[in-house]
């Protein structure tokens, strides 16, 4: 067993001394390391494409037919398709990130993560990254097939801003997901129910299939707090300029700035929360052990 005779460091002190660069590199590696099981899982069990791509497309189609049954203007079909595409990311944030830390604890993995020299944020990012592949595929299919099948016509003038808003929406969403993950872990068994609770109500408040401005004060509140609401509204304004989506809410530029602020806030909050979680875990000795 020659491998056992090869020391990786000359002394324990050397083993413990890492440069900030090495720590950062390890955290980045961990992101990909944690994403890996997710990607392998997707490749190993392809049934997810049916459940996570085809079926959500059908759900979106159901809303398209609601508007068709109401003889709604074509623009509204576009709202549904765009909303349907963006829900993929929200689902990923809630289920594959928010609730996941709690599942990791339950499976006994969280304790092992705590013993490794990485930040828990890397683990969460890894989970999100692994889930993002499925989400992107789902969003892409809903957007492309929906556009073709239901004849949606976009009128984008500001592609760069649209792309920026999309990216910012994702960063804010995933920052929010990290905060959720910490909260879910704190609240224990409610995690699953909370994840469910965050689906339809957030869809509603975010104006999934209609301009969020129609919700009045509630819509304004959603825009100022929910990344999905503000991101979706900005993207609708940019994708369907001059339509009903542009009335009653801030301009896309202002909403992009809002998303930047949300990203910063949620990432900082997540960092604080995860540290708090770890401190609590070590203090109370219950967060890393399996629940009831």
């Amino acid at each position: 067993m020659t491998i056992f005779a090869r020391p990786r460091t000359a002394s324990p002190m050397e083993a413990a001394r890492w440069s900030p660069r090495r720590q950062l590199a390890t955290n980045l590696r961990s992101v990909f390391g944690r994403a890996y099981p997710r990607l392998i899982g997707l490749a190993r069990e392809p049934s997810w494409t049916f459940f996570e791509v085809l079926l959500p497309f059908l759900t979106t189609s159901a809303f398209v037919f609601v508007y068709r049954a109401l003889d709604a203007p074509a623009e509204y079909i576009g709202f549904v398709v765009l909303g349907g595409a963006m829900t993929a990311f929200w689902i990923n944030v809630v289920w594959m990130m928010g609730a996941q830390l709690w599942w990791e604890k339950d499976a006994g993995n969280l304790e092992l993560y705590f013993t490794t020299p990485i930040d828990l944020m890397s683990v969460l990012l890894g989970m999100a990254l692994g889930g993002l592949v499925a989400s992107c595929l789902r969003a892409g299919v809903v957007l492309l097939v929906g556009t073709v099948v239901y004849g949606v016509s976009f009128g984008v003038d500001q592609w760069v801003l649209l792309l920026a808003v999309f990216v910012l929406t994702l960063t804010a969403l995933y920052g929010f997901g990290m905060v959720l993950a910490s909260l879910f872990l704190l609240w224990g068994r409610e995690a699953f129910h909370l994840a469910q609770l965050l689906q339809e109500p957030v869809y509603f408040l975010s104006g999934l299939n209609f301009p969020v401005a129609r919700l009045g004060m509630l819509g304004a509140l959603a825009i100022s707090t929910l990344p999905l609401a503000v991101g979706l509204d900005a993207m609708r304004q940019l994708a369907f300029p001059g339509g009903v989506a542009t009335y009653g809410t801030p301009s896309p530029e202002i909403e992009a700035a809002l998303l930047v602020a949300m990203t910063c806030f949620f990432l900082l909050a997540a960092r604080f929360m995860l540290r708090t979680i770890e401190r609590m875990a070590r203090h109370e000795g219950r967060l890393t052990t399996r629940g009831d």
Partner: peptide, 11 residues
């Protein structure tokens, strides 16, 4: 509510 608002915005 999602569906009701969809109905309201059109009708």
């Amino acid at each position: 509510l999602i569906l009701v608002v969809m109905l309201e915005v059109v009708s």
